[in-house]
Every structure is written in C-alpha cells, then in structure tokens.
Amino acid sequence: MAERYSSFAPGGTAWLLQRVTAAFLVVVLAFHFFLLHFVNHAAEIEFAGTQARMENVGYFLTMVSFLVAGTFHGVNGVYNALINQGLDGTQKKVVLAVLVIASLALIAQGIYVATTMAGWT
C-alpha cells in the first residue's frame, strides 16, 4: 500500500492555520452569499450599496479578514501542494518568496480598495 505523504506536519502551525482559515472561509462565504445573493439580488447590487456596506466597521473588518484568510489559505495550499510534488532547494525558496510577495501585494491592494470603498482615503 502506498504511504501517504503530506508537507503539513500534523499539529504544526501551518496545518492548524490551514484548517482554521478553511472553517472561517466557509462561514464568511456563507454570509457573503446570503447577503449578496439572497438578501440583495445580483441585479440590485450597486456601487453606492457597496460603499454603504463598507462604511460599516463590522462589515469592513469581516471583508478584510475574508481577504487575508482567503489569501493565506490559497497560497499556503498551493505552496504545500508544490512541496508535495517534490519542490525543494533553491526552487522552493524562490517559489516561497514569489508567493509571499504576491500575497502581500494582493492584500495591500485589497485593503486599499476596501478603504477607498469605505471613504477612508
């Protein structure tokens, strides 16, 4: 029988954060779909409504947390999938650096858009 291999060390920080962000994303994604697809139908979503929602500090913090958790969860998953495929050495360091830089850029851009939508910039 083939041995199971995972780059996640059970009980490690990355392993725990991957699961915590997954649970958080499921809950916030359900909230997002409920609010933006059932309470407000897609045809009713307008720029002004988005601005009004982002002005609410609770909503703003939820969406920024959604952005950070989603970015971490996705990038950490891709990184560990690449390690599971045999990525190591210098390639591993380069991929990690590129993913970290891309993640920080995505989060910075997302926070900039969120603060602009909230009217804070």
Rank of each mutant, 00 (worst) to 15 (best):
M1L: 13
A2H: 13
E3D: 15
E3A: 15
E3W: 15
R4S: 10
Y5P: 01
S6H: 03
S7Q: 02
F8Y: 15
F8Q: 07
F8H: 14
A9V: 15
P10I: 10
G12Y: 03
T13F: 14
L17V: 11
Q18P: 00
Q18V: 04
R19N: 10
R19P: 05
V20W: 13
A22V: 08
A23F: 15
A23G: 14
F24N: 02
F24H: 04
V26P: 01
V26D: 02
V27N: 02
V28E: 11
V28F: 09
V28C: 07
V28H: 06
L29C: 13
A30D: 07
H32T: 09
H32S: 12
F33G: 15
F34W: 15
L35K: 15
L36G: 13
H37L: 10
F38T: 13
F38R: 12
V39M: 13
H41A: 10
E44C: 03
E44P: 00
I45M: 06
I45C: 00
E46P: 00
F47P: 00
A48E: 14
G49W: 05
G49R: 10
A52R: 08
R53L: 11
E55W: 00
E55Y: 03
N56Q: 11
V57H: 10
V57D: 09
G58L: 11
Y59N: 09
F60R: 13
L61I: 05
V64N: 04
V64Q: 03
V64T: 10
V64D: 09
V64Y: 05
S65C: 11
F66P: 02
V68P: 04
T71S: 11
T71A: 09
T71V: 13
T71G: 06
T71Q: 08
F72A: 02
F72L: 08
F72P: 02
G74L: 13
N76S: 08
N76L: 05
N76A: 07
G77Y: 03
G77T: 08
G77H: 08
G77S: 09
A81F: 10
A81M: 12
A81N: 11
A81T: 03
A81Q: 11
I83T: 04
N84D: 15
Q85M: 14
Q85N: 12
L87G: 00
L87T: 01
D88G: 07
G89N: 04
G89C: 03
G89V: 04
T90F: 13
T90C: 01
K92H: 06
K93G: 00
V94A: 12
V95M: 06
V95D: 03
A97C: 06
V98D: 01
L99E: 03
V100G: 07
V100F: 10
A102D: 02
A102F: 08
A102Q: 00
S103I: 01
L104D: 07
A105V: 14
A105P: 02
L106N: 07
L106K: 02
L106E: 05
A108I: 08
Q109W: 14
G110V: 01
G110L: 02
G110F: 06
G110T: 02
G110K: 01
Y112K: 08
A114S: 15
A114M: 06
T116Q: 12
T116D: 15
G119D: 07
W120C: 03
W120R: 15
T121P: 08
